[in-house]
């Protein structure tokens, strides 16, 4: 979808719940996510790359929906309008020695 990123999204204004931890694996707060969005990180994929939110041990299974709703609210669009993120192998974390013994890894 064409997106001119020059458009102002309103700027960051502090909120009382900014200290709330959203991504527990990587310890990312709501305030960090909101600030990144106002800094121009406008997709779920970019937020993952910039903050590692949803990129820890659980790979976003816990916080994925929360991050999505924060992004949707900051951009003023419905959550369903946001492009989904990609899940990648392995489905569950796997020790290097286990993977080394396996010949295969399940892939998306």
């Amino acid at each position: 979808m064409l997106q001119d990123r020059t458009k102002n999204t309103g700027g960051f204004s502090p909120a009382p719940d900014d200290g709330l931890i959203i991504c527990r694996c990587e310890e990312i707060t709501k305030g960090e996510i909101r600030r990144a969005i106002q800094d121009g990180l406008l997709t779920l994929t970019e937020l993952r790359r910039f903050l590692r939110a949803g990129m820890g041990l659980c790979q976003g299974q816990t916080c994925g929906r929360l991050v999505k709703s924060i992004l949707a609210r900051e951009l003023g669009v419905p959550p369903a309008a946001l492009e989904p993120v990609v899940s990648r192998a392995p489905v569950r974390p796997v020790e290097m020695q286990v993977l080394a013994r396996d010949q295969e890894i399940d892939h998306d």
Binding site: Q59, M96, H107
Partner: peptide, 17 residues
Amino acid sequence: ILTYFPALEHIKIIRSW
């Protein structure tokens, strides 16, 4: 990797691309 760095054996891979 484990032949060079055996101490990494229990570290978990979480993502590949």
